[in-house]
Design a binder for these strands. Structure first.
Length: 124
RNA sequence: CGGGCCGGCCGGGCGACCGCGUUGGACCUGGAUCACUCCAGGGCCACCGAGGAAGGUCCGGGCUCCGCAGAGCAGGGCGGUGGGUAACACCCACCCGGGGCAACCCGCGGGACAGUGCCACAGAGAACAGACCGCCUCCCGAGUCAGUAGCACCGACGAGGGAGGUAAGGGUGAAACGGUGGAGCAAGAGACCACCAGCACGCCGGGUGACCGGCGUGGCUAGGCAAACCCCGCCCGGAGCAAGAUCAGACAGCGCACGUCCGAGGGCUGCUCGCCCGAGUGCGCGGGUAGAUCGCUGGAGGCCGUCGGCAACGGCGGUCGUAGAUGGAUGGUCGCCCCUCCUCCCGCAAGGGCGGAGGACAGAACCCGGCCUACAGGCCGGCCCGUUCG
RNA sequence: UGGGAUAUGGUGUAAUUGGCAACACAGCUGGUUCUGGUCCAGUCGUUCUAGGUUCGAGUCCUAGUAUCCCAG
């Protein structure tokens, strides 16, 4: 899926990515991208890292877990397109709770394309 | 066959590909070390990987720390009886009260002669009862009748008023100081009698007990609310795994107040006492860190058999023992089967077929025992009532 | 994790010891006016839900639901 080493796990990175990064939003997700963040990226970390935000407004614990797991699978399939050192934060909107996996994939691709991360031939 | 009551259990299955986490194994790379070996990273292989409620966090414990927690008051909880349990506000059995034809269900179910308080409206009267209508006796008495030729006296009736008697009846209310019948009386009344209901006391019998049954005596009647204050009995030290322990790492102090055995401040929830620690502490401003490891999963454990017990449960024997994340793993995409529903088609019907949709509630975070709440669908067992047949 | 508070027409708030659910604004209907406004009258409630105590519950008790706040 997505190994733990490629996850964003500290609050500072989340804050930097959501405040200073570029943003693209769809119907079900909002994607933040921060390229080459030296203040939060350590010297040994070279690959990209991804974090997820699924708030309580999305649903109860079961729904939130399901949304996050689907997004992790979708991001893992597109992980090679992310540049090294990038910090990506994917935030789920309440509409993501009732959406099927294909809808989430389309929205995520739309966001990544507008952030110029995805080549057209990779699109589903 | 129809309706109902109770208890127990499951809560999708199989397969393919791609993934995630813990643990273990061999291998590779790097580092430490004379070495044994250890640490970090990487891909590979193997095992395992959510629930009956994991949920709400409402109770009870274990565990950890608070110098092992003392007394009184306050505070909180519980409340029929007996048992079970580590403990409980839980469970089982029984008693009492209520509901149901029944199986069965429901009940915060101690005390109202220790005290204080409340019982609106209506009603005469609502808590040491009361007297509106009514009924009865006596007195006064407009007047009427009778009587007389007429009037008066005497006699009968009598609107109305007064003095008393009475509480059976009416009416109010959630609740009105026993019910029915008799005897009695001017009218009436437990003032009296019989039966019934209920209360108190005594004796006898049964039960561990709550309590139940019987007999006798008494006085004839004693309202409800303690989920109002309260009284009685029993129980409760505080905090919580962000407890707590170890390692690594960072920084910067300054001002004010009190104090160093005439003791600041702190611990024992709050107050008082008492005990203990005690040389620094409190407040304000400013600065720094919030990383790793342990705790961390074997526990009052599950299942089977047997014995004791009505049961909850307990004794003994055997057997199984496999989640441990930390921005938080346990998944994603499909195929087949199963169940339900819908459209259409075939068929007299039972039913069959193509296609489509749906399959609940819900995610471990220290661990147990309960309670409560949510839940598609399904399985098993026992019992009651009614109808029909034998 | 521990502690606390609230829920009443559409909205914001009341209701003394348990005893007729009140007020303002908004909405709707009707009247007044040539029309609109103003004004007048009327209308609008599972007192968050369920159960219980009581003759009687917005109030008392128990359980639940939702929202908010505080401490670490």
């Amino acid at each position: 899926m997505l190994p733990a080493a490629h996850r964003v796990t500290d609050a500072a990175s989340f804050r930097e990515a959501t405040r200073r990064g570029r943003r693209a939003s769809g119907r079900t997700v909002v994607t933040h991208l921060l390229l080459e963040a030296p203040s939060v990226t350590g010297p040994g970390v070279s690959s990209a890292r991804v974090g997820f935000v699924v708030s309580k407004a999305v649903g109860n614990a079961v729904v939130r877990n399901r949304v996050r797991r689907r997004l992790r699978h979708l991001v893992a399939a597109r992980f090679d397109c992310l540049p090294a050192g990038a910090v990506v934060v994917v935030r789920a909107l309440p509409a993501a709770a009732a959406s099927p996996g294909a809808q989430l994939a389309a929205d995520l691709d739309s966001c990544l394309r507008r952030l110029s991360l995805l080549r057209p031939e990779v699109l589903v």
